[in-house]
Amino acid sequence: MLIFHLDPLASSIFSFLVIVALILAFVMLGSHWIRNHVYAFAAESWVIAALSAAIGFYGHYPELFIIAALTALLRGTVLPILLLRIIRDLKLNREFTPLLQPSSSLLVGGLLVVFSYALAHKIGLRLDLVNSFAVLALTTMFGMKLIGFLMLVLRTEAVSSILGLLVIENGIFLGSQILVPGMPLLLEMVILFDLLIIVSTFGLLIRYLHREIGTTSSRDLTRLVG
């Protein structure tokens, strides 16, 4: 398996890319300018594309090059353009009603990553993988997952909800590239296109929200309770 025997150069490249992706998740968590979230998401997707390509190269999985290209195209380019169009059309600038200050949300995010590490370490111990790259991959996977959920909880703007979901997706995708690079190609491609459909659906619904309710903040969606 790939994670057992890596040469030092490959290992450092992978670690570097994974950590950059995690830091970009924190960039999204710390900034309140929605446009910056989208840029950070695009950058993160390109980093994941690079990671896919690197794994394809070092692990001899040629089909990962296709995945890398599609990731860069769909996640790194098409999705951000769609999101930027929504932001432009609805004239959104920044998140108006954060529940926590940026510094506090960064702190909570940090704690979540520590928790992810504890979990990953535990699994690593059970599987005799403690010193391998798998622990870092698992930490990032769980960490990005939890940061995505944190964004869903803290942010109220509808576009931010989409971005939170996309960070969750990116985390899973990044983890699956490292842990199971041999996962069937068909599945990964379908998931990529699925993401595109989901985001278009979200885009459409946001426009309806804007037109019919006159708000895109989840704080104002209070008609249905109980």
Partner: peptide, 8 residues
């Protein structure tokens, strides 16, 4: 409005 909110 309610339907859109529910869908969202």
């Amino acid at each position: 409005p309610q339907s859109i909110e529910a869908a969202w």
